[in-house]
């Protein structure tokens, strides 16, 4: 039986859809059978993030209202063949589906997948209630900014209220340059900002994704960046997927690698001399 994970945030634009697509594909890369469901009915995006927008024929509403069979609506990913997408409808409203229908749908999907990721819409209204209906646990995505953190806090409260006590946090779009500026001086990244957010929200941290310009490029090219080995954000998503599979992995080095001459200087104690002044 698969586990149903809802990816939510409260605030819009923090990277729910990007996270769902990348984590889903990363799980697929590790051999898991994954189903991604876009529950943002009326404003579907997940198909674009995966580059499957041209193949969409049937959608979530069609499945729930019995227009088509589940198998007809599921789209297989271009790159990883164990990953499937169930797109949302673009023309309908979020009230056209009920939490009960979502639960029934998830029960049908559970036996044939290891992970079912639900991409939740922004906000805490009907769409959000639909998305969390059948979930086993939740991923809350937030950015290190006050508005996103407060909305995440509200959402965590609502999730707890709905009986979803297992909530994990992904801190998205963390600007590592700022981290570097606040670094502790001994070479390790100053994790103050991360700790602040995790302390404030009081939930387990699932991963930290550094801000990466290539996310925008990958959206333009309709190809999730997790597929490229060298991207730092992609690496972060792969780490998150491994943590979801139960591995224990420390946070990746978040500060960008230093230039060669700087590393050489550090090697010869230059850094220490500066410290002593």
């Amino acid at each position: 039986m698969g586990q149903v994970v809802v990816v939510t945030s409260g605030k819009g634009g923090v990277g729910k859809t990007t996270t769902t697509a990348n984590v889903g594909l990363a799980l697929g890369m590790f051999g898991q059978r994954v189903c991604l469901i876009d529950t943002d009915i009326g404003l579907r995006n997940l198909d674009l993030a995966l580059g499957l927008d041209e193949r969409v024929v049937y959608d979530l509403i069609d499945v729930c209202s019995g227009v088509c069979r589940l198998q007809q609506a599921l789209l297989r990913d271009k790159h990883i063949e164990t990953v499937y997408l169930l797109p949302a409808a673009q023309t309908k409203a979020k009230t056209d589906i009920t939490p009960e229908q979502m639960r029934t749908l998830l029960e049908q999907l559970k036996p044939s997948f290891d992970f079912i990721l639900l991409d939740s819409p922004a906000g805490i209204e009907q769409g959000f209630q639909n998305a969390i209906a059948g979930a086993d646990w939740a991923i809350v995505v937030t950015n290190p900014e006050p508005a996103a953190v407060r909305d995440a806090d509200r959402v965590i409260g609502l999730l707890h209220g709905a009986g979803l006590t297992d909530v994990r946090l992904i801190l998205n779009r963390l600007r590592t340059q700022r981290l570097d500026a606040r670094s502790t001086g001994n070479g390790t990244a100053g994790l103050g900002e991360i700790e602040e957010v995790v302390d404030q929200l009081a939930v387990d941290l699932l991963g930290v994704v550094p801000e990466d310009e290539r996310v925008v490029d990958s959206n333009l090219q309709k190809e999730p960046l997790v597929l490229h080995q060298q991207d730092r954000a992609g690496q972060a998503y792969r780490e998150i997927a491994r943590r979801m599979l139960g591995e224990s992995i420390p946070l990746m080095e978040l500060t960008p690698p230093k230039p060669f001459w700087r590393r050489l200087g550090l090697r010869f104690g230059h850094h220490a001399r500066v410290e002593r002044k």
Partner: peptide, 25 residues
């Protein structure tokens, strides 16, 4: 016990003791 999260409203007929943070909102 535990944090009181944004959007929650807690009522008490007497004194109220919160063992944890009270979040914004």
């Amino acid at each position: 016990w535990g944090p009181v999260r944004s959007g929650a409203e807690i009522q008490s007929d007497g004194a109220l003791i919160v063992a944890g943070d009270v979040h914004s909102g």
